[in-house]
């Protein structure tokens, strides 16, 4: 309900910050088996278990990279590690370790390009959604990743947590410790809007306003 359904392919997550937006999407996705190639410390298990439920970690396998070469090696390795049950791959902060790396810029630029290409290939080969993000990248590196994406999710910060929008999808509600905070689009969907020819649900509901 909170996030749009994820389609196979490279899915670019536009984050409002470098923190838990990707973890939020992963939690909502409820995948059977998730492979997480981490960079920049995004794989916070505390973000994944935001409500203290360790079950949220079930089926998630993580490997962290701390250098650009390690990151590239992990993306390459993900193809071999993925099983038939893998239905989600998560690669947040893709450019993080390539930016300002200690070495020739051209070497890391080339490595980054190869990683982006591998991610696209990975999505095709596994036929699953591959979530990527670039919250702290230079425009050039962000664009290189973004341009390859099949779809884009936009995360916004709201007083009720992250809202995830996608073309044709607006979150109908936010889960809040045992209850739902609904949104205006949800009620529009249920009841219709003033001036609309009619509600979209099978049984119209009449709104009475004093």
């Amino acid at each position: 309900m909170q996030t749009p359904p994820l389609e196979p392919g490279l899915v670019y997550v536009d984050q409002p910050d470098g923190r838990g937006a990707v973890a939020h999407v992963v939690r909502s996705a409820e995948a059977t088996e998730t492979l997480w190639v981490d960079a920049g410390g995004a794989a916070s298990t505390y973000a994944l278990t935001a409500d203290g439920d360790r079950h949220a970690l079930r089926g998630v396998r993580v490997a962290r990279a701390f250098t650009a070469h390690q990151h590239h090696a992990l993306v390459r390795r993900a193809v071999d590690v993925a099983s038939g049950r893998t239905d989600l791959v998560v690669v947040p902060n893709v450019p993080a370790l390539y930016e300002g790396a200690d070495g020739p810029e051209s070497e890391y630029d080339r490595l980054y390009g190869a990683t982006c290409e591998l991610l696209e290939t990975l999505a095709d080969a596994l036929d699953v959604p591959v979530l990527v993000s670039a919250p702290t990248a230079s425009d050039a590196r962000r664009d290189r990743l973004h341009d390859r994406a099949d779809t884009e999710l936009t995360c916004r910060n709201t007083p009720f947590g992250y809202a995830v929008d996608a073309p044709g999808h607006t979150p109908p509600g936010y889960w809040r410790d045992g209850w739902w905070q609904t949104t205006v689009p949800y009620w529009v969907d249920v009841c219709g809007a003033v001036g609309d020819p009619g509600p979209t649900t099978a049984d119209p509901v009449e709104l009475v306003v004093d």
Partner: peptide, 19 residues
């Protein structure tokens, strides 16, 4: 020259206990 040997994939629950 460059540290390139990455860590192995591990269950997130193990990471939760280990990190």
């Amino acid at each position: 020259w460059r540290a390139r040997e990455p860590e192995a994939f591990k269950p997130a629950r193990t990471l939760h206990d280990a990190d």
